[in-house]
Protein backbone atom coordinates (compact mmCIF):
# COMPACT_ATOMS: atom_id res chain seq x y z
CA UNK A 1 0.00 0.00 0.00
CA UNK A 2 2.70 2.43 1.09
CA UNK A 3 4.88 1.36 -1.83
CA UNK A 4 2.03 2.17 -4.22
CA UNK A 5 1.46 5.56 -2.65
CA UNK A 6 5.20 6.35 -2.81
CA UNK A 7 5.39 5.23 -6.42
CA UNK A 8 2.42 7.38 -7.43
CA UNK A 9 3.92 10.43 -5.68
CA UNK A 10 7.29 9.87 -7.39
CA UNK A 11 5.57 9.57 -10.78
CA UNK A 12 3.66 12.80 -10.12
CA UNK A 13 6.95 14.55 -9.31
CA UNK A 14 8.55 13.25 -12.49
CA UNK A 15 5.52 14.42 -14.47
CA UNK A 16 6.02 17.96 -13.20
CA UNK A 17 9.72 17.86 -14.11
CA UNK A 18 8.84 16.61 -17.59
CA UNK A 19 6.20 19.30 -18.05
CA UNK A 20 8.62 21.96 -16.80
CA UNK A 21 11.32 20.83 -19.24
CA UNK A 22 8.85 20.90 -22.13
CA UNK A 23 7.76 24.35 -21.04
CA UNK A 24 11.33 25.66 -21.12
CA UNK A 25 11.81 24.25 -24.59
CA UNK A 26 8.46 25.24 -26.10
CA UNK A 27 7.28 28.46 -24.45
CA UNK A 28 7.96 31.65 -26.39
CA UNK A 29 9.32 34.21 -23.89
CA UNK A 30 11.34 34.53 -20.68
CA UNK A 31 8.37 34.91 -18.36
CA UNK A 32 6.37 31.88 -19.41
CA UNK A 33 9.54 29.78 -19.45
CA UNK A 34 10.33 30.88 -15.91
CA UNK A 35 6.77 30.03 -14.95
CA UNK A 36 7.23 26.50 -16.33
CA UNK A 37 10.63 25.81 -14.83
CA UNK A 38 9.79 27.02 -11.32
CA UNK A 39 6.76 24.74 -11.23
CA UNK A 40 9.10 21.83 -11.89
CA UNK A 41 11.37 22.89 -9.04
CA UNK A 42 8.72 23.43 -6.39
CA UNK A 43 5.99 20.91 -7.14
CA UNK A 44 8.13 18.27 -8.85
CA UNK A 45 10.76 18.18 -6.14
CA UNK A 46 8.05 18.40 -3.46
CA UNK A 47 6.27 15.32 -4.78
CA UNK A 48 9.56 13.44 -5.08
CA UNK A 49 10.49 14.33 -1.49
CA UNK A 50 7.04 13.22 -0.31
CA UNK A 51 7.29 9.99 -2.30
CA UNK A 52 10.75 9.17 -0.95
CA UNK A 53 9.55 9.99 2.57
CA UNK A 54 6.65 7.57 2.22
CA UNK A 55 8.93 4.86 0.81
CA UNK A 56 11.71 5.31 3.40
CA UNK A 57 9.62 6.01 6.51
CA UNK A 58 12.62 7.51 8.24
CA UNK A 59 11.53 10.81 9.75
CA UNK A 60 15.09 12.13 10.17
CA UNK A 61 15.91 11.77 6.50
CA UNK A 62 12.46 13.07 5.61
CA UNK A 63 13.07 16.24 7.63
CA UNK A 64 16.45 16.66 5.93
CA UNK A 65 14.83 16.30 2.51
CA UNK A 66 12.12 18.80 3.50
CA UNK A 67 14.88 21.25 4.45
CA UNK A 68 16.56 20.75 1.07
CA UNK A 69 13.21 21.24 -0.63
CA UNK A 70 12.68 24.48 1.28
CA UNK A 71 16.12 25.77 0.27
CA UNK A 72 15.58 24.84 -3.37
CA UNK A 73 12.20 26.60 -3.30
CA UNK A 74 13.70 29.73 -1.78
CA UNK A 75 16.61 29.93 -4.21
CA UNK A 76 14.32 29.02 -7.11
CA UNK A 77 11.85 31.77 -6.24
CA UNK A 78 14.55 34.37 -5.85
CA UNK A 79 16.50 33.49 -8.98
CA UNK A 80 13.20 33.41 -10.89
CA UNK A 81 12.44 36.94 -9.68
CA UNK A 82 15.95 38.14 -10.57
CA UNK A 83 15.82 36.58 -14.04
CA UNK A 84 12.35 38.04 -14.53
CA UNK A 85 13.58 41.52 -13.58
CA UNK A 86 16.52 41.14 -15.94
CA UNK A 87 14.23 39.95 -18.73
CA UNK A 88 11.87 42.91 -18.14
CA UNK A 89 14.76 45.40 -18.27
CA UNK A 90 16.09 43.80 -21.44
CA UNK A 91 12.76 43.89 -23.27
CA UNK A 92 12.16 47.48 -22.14
CA UNK A 93 15.59 48.55 -23.41
CA UNK A 94 14.91 46.73 -26.66
CA UNK A 95 11.56 48.48 -27.13
CA UNK A 96 13.05 51.86 -26.33
CA UNK A 97 15.81 51.44 -28.87
CA UNK A 98 13.28 50.27 -31.47
CA UNK A 99 11.16 53.41 -31.11
Amino acid sequence: MMAWLGGVLLMLGLLFFLAGSFGVLRFPDVFSRLHAVTKADTLGLGFIVLGLGVLQQDWQRFLLMLLIWGLVMLSGTISCQLLGQYGRDQTRDHEESAE
Binding site: L74, S75, I78, Q81, L82, Q85
Partner: peptide
Protein backbone atom coordinates in the same frame (compact mmCIF):
# COMPACT_ATOMS: atom_id res chain seq x y z
CA UNK B 1 22.35 46.17 -7.55
CA UNK B 2 19.07 44.43 -7.02
CA UNK B 3 17.53 44.79 -3.57
CA UNK B 4 16.22 41.24 -3.71
CA UNK B 5 19.66 39.75 -4.42
CA UNK B 6 21.19 41.78 -1.59
CA UNK B 7 18.56 40.64 0.89
CA UNK B 8 18.98 37.03 -0.14
Amino acid sequence: HWPLARQW
